[in-house]
Computed example of a mutant assay.
Amino acid sequence: MTIERFEAPFALVRFRTGAGVRLGLLAGERVRPLSSDDLGAAGLNDFLAAPDWDRLSALATDDGEWMPLADVALTAPVEPRQLLQTGANYRQHVIELVVAGLTQDGTRTPDQARSFAADIMDERKRTGEPYFFIGLPAGVVGDDVPLVLPSYSKVHDWELELAIVIGREAFRVSREDALGHVAGYTIVNDITTRDLVFRKDMKEIGTDWYRAKNAPGFFPAGPLLVPAPFVDPSDLNVRLELNGEVMQDASTSDLLFDIPALVSGASQTMPLLPGDLLLTGSPAGNGQHWKRFLRDGDVMTGSIEGLGTQVVRCVAEEVR
């Protein structure tokens, strides 16, 4: 794995051992296992409910049982019980989608359509609410697991996203208090099967996010859980390369609804639990835009400033 674009003093990780998966502390180029005594909590989510970062900071500089990072196989750094996703949340991305639709019949020039779309987005930001839907936590894996492309489609797509990791339980919290419920941040690549997004048998039903987004391994996460005190989520570069070619390159400063708005909005319906993931949306540059979808042998390198880099390898599903 790589920790490029990671500069925090430490981060939480989970790594594979002969006995399964263990929680660990990453500091520099080395990793140490974390016991419940080290955490002062029974496990990861219990720790995130009331994270004591000073406790981990002290461990990051002591002479514990450290291993070289190169000798460790990292996996997903989180164990969410709930996974929420945010749609249409990058201003420029949504504007371009609207422009593409409005210019098809020739009644508006691209500039007219862009101005119209920008006004819609600005009004939505002032008076609207975030758009949420749910994913299955069972789809969360590390980038140590190849992404198996289901054989029932040839239009599997990427969507790199900043993911919020919930700390203290959040239920109907205000925007002003929302950041107090964020434990940290990680990377998630939200894989989508495009030809399953809209139902063909009954168009009135609309979107089918269950079938389009929840195949095994469709939420590659991590490799790091970086504590919130080390991250300013307001202006982070989000970048995805496909086989070395840049496909997505944007900033979280373009989010229509920022982190406090998302946490507050999502918490109004159901309590957000420690360790849950709240994805913030994906910027422009997915496969649908490029008319290029994932294939056997593709390698996606996704990075978010300050959160490291994940490398996801794609393999075709074996048809039996």
Rank of each mutant, 00 (worst) to 15 (best):
T269C: 15
K203S: 14
L242A: 02
L255N: 01
L262R: 01
G184E: 03
L224T: 01
D258L: 05
N243V: 09
L272F: 06
M247P: 00
T193A: 15
S267Y: 00
N189L: 10
F219M: 15
M247C: 13
D235N: 14
N237C: 14
G244F: 07
R194P: 02
D232Y: 06
A221M: 11
P233F: 08
L255I: 02
M270C: 14
R194W: 02
L256I: 12
F198M: 15
W209A: 14
F230P: 03
Q248E: 11
P233M: 10
F219Y: 14
S267W: 00
K213L: 09
P223S: 12
G244I: 07
E245L: 13
N189R: 09
D201Y: 09
P227N: 10
T269A: 15
N243Y: 05
V263M: 11
L240Y: 04
E245P: 01
V182C: 10
L196H: 04
D195S: 10
T252Q: 05
D195C: 08
A261R: 04
G265D: 03
S253Y: 03
P227T: 10
L225V: 04
G184A: 12
R194H: 06
A212K: 02
V246I: 13
P223A: 13
L256K: 01
A250K: 00
L256H: 01
D195T: 05
L272E: 02
V238M: 08
N237H: 13
I205W: 13
F218T: 06
T252G: 09
V231M: 06
D195A: 08
F219G: 12
P220M: 11
P216I: 12
F218N: 03
T269N: 14
L273P: 00
S251N: 10
L262G: 00
A215F: 13
V197P: 08
A183W: 01
T192G: 13
A266I: 02
A266V: 03
T186A: 11
D235W: 11
V238I: 15
Y210E: 15
N189Q: 09
V238Y: 00
G217E: 09
E204V: 13
M270F: 02
D195M: 11
W209N: 13
S234C: 08
V263L: 11
R199I: 02
I187Q: 01
V197K: 12
D195F: 10
F219L: 15
L256A: 13
M202R: 15
K200T: 10
A183E: 02
P260K: 01
R194M: 10
D258A: 08
F257K: 00
L196G: 02
F218H: 09
G222A: 07
I191M: 15
I205G: 07
V197E: 09
L272S: 04
P220F: 03
P229F: 04
L242C: 04
D235S: 12
M202K: 14
G244T: 06
D190N: 13
Y210L: 15
S267H: 01
T207E: 12
P271S: 08
V182Y: 05
L273T: 00
I191D: 04
P227H: 05
E245I: 08
L224N: 03
T252W: 00
S253I: 03
D254C: 05
L255S: 02
S234R: 07
F230L: 11
R239F: 02
S234Y: 03
V226E: 07
R199K: 12
P216C: 11
N214Q: 10
P220G: 11
